[in-house]
């Protein structure tokens, strides 16, 4: 990747559906993916609930976004991470995470990558700018 491509990270720390932050934050990611930027997305704290599979917002009468998350890889957003401790503290396992796309060659489903907080801290330190949603 060229050196002048800027690293932009999104942190998602709020839970989905109670407020619009996660939903509108996703809109920003999809737009930004069309530009020359090295994008990464990190789900931490209550943000891990945003990537729990099986969300059904029909009875709430609001638009969900699980299908859009399922297409992140199609938007070329592939650096998607989940903080292990946040996930475990909330009783979730890797098994609970939704699929964000599939491997072009093998058609294997791709899930967010579960990482430890020190890895996330190291990634944060490398960013040009960070947007929190």
């Amino acid at each position: 990747m060229a050196e002048d491509i800027k690293k932009i990270m999104f942190t998602v720390r709020k839970p989905p559906h109670g407020t619009i932050y996660v939903y509108e934050g996703l809109e920003v990611k999809l737009i930004m993916a069309a530009y020359d930027a090295d994008i990464s997305v990190v789900f931490m704290d209550d943000g891990v609930f945003a990537v729990k599979k099986g969300q059904d917002t029909k009875a709430l009468g609001i638009k969900g976004f699980e299908a859009t998350y399922g297409a992140l890889v199609d938007y070329e957003i592939t650096k998607v991470f989940v903080d292990r401790q946040s996930m475990e503290e909330r009783g979730m396992t890797e098994e609970d995470l939704l699929v964000i796309g599939e491997d072009e060659d093998t058609e294997e489903p791709i899930k967010p990558q579960v990482v430890d907080s020190d890895e996330i801290a190291a990634m944060m330190a490398e960013q040009h700018n960070i947007l929190a949603f």
Binding site: K6, V28, I31, A37, L131
Partner: peptide, 20 residues
């Protein structure tokens, strides 16, 4: 204007600060 403007700010500004 559109979210492209925010994208350009995030890329072109040396620092982006979020208040929320």
């Amino acid at each position: 204007s559109g979210l492209g403007q925010l994208t350009m700010m995030a890329i072109e500004a040396d620092r982006l600060v979020v208040f929320g």
